[in-house]
């Protein structure tokens, strides 16, 4: 199946000289949830805005559902819903009117049933006759999502959807995104809350200084780059690790009460069995053990740091 969004050799240099996107290539599959991760200023919003037609690319091509987003912009844009990062709403319009306006703007006739469904899905239906300025920040965020869904898009861009949003709305949003995915909608979200990507995404892309430095299936990414650590809680504190264990990547914990063994899950052998045997031979007993896997957040920090070469 051809990708629903395909980005080829996309570059953007702003008038200020800022090179916001550098030769970006990216293919988004239909029906997936794709999380675009990156630090502030990495080019996440520029990338999204370029696909949506708000920013003009310097070079490269973008296709949405096979339609070039410049030469065939009507067909391309009709497929896209965009929830911007900033809370940019009208003030005096009523919720129902502003959502209906969005539907009209995307070339569709009135469909009160659909608008009603969208508002109900977002717990906005009770507020439908309120003016937007009377709503709280979280409610305004919901209005923006409702506007983006008003024309039944097949690709939904969520630019930092949960920035400054309370727990309840965040969970509502995650539920909504999953429901949309079940309906076949492709969701592309940017975030710098890694846990969000970890929770939601099928695939993860990492962008840094305008370059996509990695695109990977989330589970695969965590398996590949994730390190595991085995912690052994010792029966008797150790002053130092015995010579016989020097071959292992071991680290003696505080007070000599635990030994931490870091191993790579990618390796054919983890070395655990041999380590335990060697420990027994050295006469070291332990009372308990546990293992930990690095989170996506740790992987992300490693990745971004690794590329700057700054921190160890």
């Amino acid at each position: 199946m051809p990708p629903i969004v395909s980005i080829e050799n996309l570059s953007k240099v702003y008038a200020s000289g800022l090179h916001a996107l550098k030769d970006v290539n990216l293919a988004i599959d239909k029906g997936e949830i794709f999380a675009l991760l990156g630090p502030n200023g990495a080019g996440k919003s520029t990338l999204i805005n370029t696909v949506c037609g708000i920013v003009t690319p310097s070079s490269g091509t973008i296709r949405v559902g096979g339609h070039d987003n410049r030469s065939d912009y009507r067909a391309a844009r009709r497929m896209i819903g965009l929830v911007p990062q900033e809370l940019t709403t009208d003030a005096f319009e009523k919720v129902w009117d502003t959502v209906s306006f969005s539907r009209g703007l995307f070339g569709l006739g009135k469909n009160p049933d659909h608008i009603e469904r969208v508002l109900k899905d977002l717990s906005l239906y009770e507020k439908r006759d309120n003016r937007i300025m009377q709503l709280s920040g979280g409610m305004k965020r919901r209005v923006l999502i409702a506007k983006a869904l008003a024309h039944e898009p097949q690709v939904l861009f969520l630019d930092e959807p949960t920035a400054g949003v309370d727990v309840e709305l965040r969970q509502d949003m995650w539920r909504l995104v999953r429901r949309l995915r079940d309906q076949g909608v492709t969701v592309i979200l940017t975030t710098h809350y890694i846990e969000e990507a970890e929770e939601m995404a099928d695939r993860v892309g990492v962008i840094r200084k305008g370059e996509i430095i990695l695109v990977e299936d989330k589970v695969e990414l965590m398996r590949k780059l994730g390190k595991k650590q085995l912690t052994l809680h010792l029966a008797e504190p150790l002053a130092a690790l015995p010579e016989s264990l020097a071959g292992y990547a071991l680290h003696l914990g505080p007070g000599g009460r635990e030994i931490v063994y870091t191993y790579d899950t990618q390796r054919e052998r983890t070395g655990i069995t041999r380590l335990l045997t060697d420990l027994a031979a050295a006469g070291i007993g332990f009372t308990d053990l546990d293992t930990q896997q690095s989170s996506l957040e740790e992987i992300f920090v490693d990745l971004v740091r690794g590329h700057t070469g700054a921190a160890p």
């Binding site: 009507r74 844009r77 009709r78 940019t88 709403t89 003030a91 969005s102 995307f106 070339g107």
Partner: peptide, 14 residues
């Protein structure tokens, strides 16, 4: 001024 122009710019409208 309000930023709502994003919608106009991303809509399939000439």
């Amino acid at each position: 001024f309000a930023g709502t122009i994003y919608e106009l710019l991303s809509a399939p409208i000439a």
